[in-house]
């Protein structure tokens, strides 16, 4: 486990080669009006690693993920995904915001799994999984269908390909959402509390799928309240509070022997 490198907010990003981080967030700030939700976040995820973000409600975890895939525009700081600066083009020593079209193109390197699943209600499970390959990446229908069915099989939902979201349980919907996220072969998978909207007995089926993905070497950035999952699966744990990363490092260290009082207080409440 390498030391978490402290990245500097810099436009002339030069990290290249095999050690280049997959996700590199530096000095990230986000304000909503007067409200400073993110106050300088530094966070790095190496390729193939799983990072879990923990923290109390309102600490800015969702906002952080939404900045990574540009559902929100950060106020300050920089995000690089696989070495590419997110949201801007650097020219003449200045940053120029990308057009909506270019942003859409950039979003293809990530995929997101939402707390409330957000499957397209007017499409079957299979059509949901095929949507991005066919309509964003231009994959031929036949191939997308084949791959979509394989992905549904992989999350244990092969027989449910024709079901609409309204006909699936929460756990099944979330597994379809994970298959949908995998369908575009993202470089980074983002999860925003994927199990918090689920009944307790459905949580495990979703966590099992996520654990498999982690074993297969996908790069994952996971916001979760499932401490056991973080302990068993994460390579790094980040603990956020009040818009900053209070503490980060090896899960065993952060979760078993936290060095900050705020982390200790949070863990006492959730364990």
């Amino acid at each position: 486990m390498p030391e978490t490198p402290v990245a500097t907010a810099t436009d002339q990003h030069t990290a290249h080669g095999p050690d280049r981080p997959m996700v590199e967030i530096a000095g990230l700030c986000k304000t909503f009006g007067e409200h400073r939700v993110l106050r300088g976040i530094d966070l790095t995820v190496a390729p193939g690693q799983v990072a879990c973000i923990l923290g109390p409600s309102g600490s800015g975890k969702s906002t952080l993920l939404r900045c990574v895939n540009q559902l929100e525009t950060a106020t300050d700081g920089a995000i690089h995904i696989d070495g590419e600066l997110v949201g801007y083009r650097v020219q003449g020593g200045r940053r120029h915001p990308l057009s909506p079209r270019q942003i859409a193109r950039q979003r293809r390197s990530t995929a997101m799994v939402f707390q409330r699943f957000n499957l397209l209600a007017h499409q079957s499970a299979l059509a949901n999984v095929m949507e991005a390959p066919v309509h964003v990446h231009g994959v031929p229908r036949d191939r997308a269908r084949e791959e979509g069915l394989a992905l549904l099989d992989r999350v244990g939902l092969g027989p449910y390909a024709d079901h609409y979201p309204a006909q699936l349980s929460g756990g099944q919907q979330q597994r379809v959402a994970i298959a949908r996220a995998l369908a575009v072969r993202p470089r980074v998978l983002l999860f925003d509390e994927p199990t918090s909207a689920l009944d307790p007995e459905l949580v495990d089926e979703v966590l099992a799928v996520m654990t498999d993905l982690a074993r297969e070497g996908l790069t994952m950035l996971v916001v979760t309240h499932e401490i056991a999952f973080a302990r068993d699966v994460a390579d790094t744990v980040f603990f956020m509070d009040g818009g900053v990363v209070v503490e980060s490092g090896d899960p065993a260290q952060v979760l078993n022997a936290p060095s900050h009082e705020r982390t200790r207080a949070f863990l006492r409440r959730v364990l």
Partner: peptide, 17 residues
Amino acid sequence: DRGQVEAATAMGMTPLS
């Protein structure tokens, strides 16, 4: 549903799509 719009946006769809 806003959530579906966000999910489609996060897939990399252009606003028109």
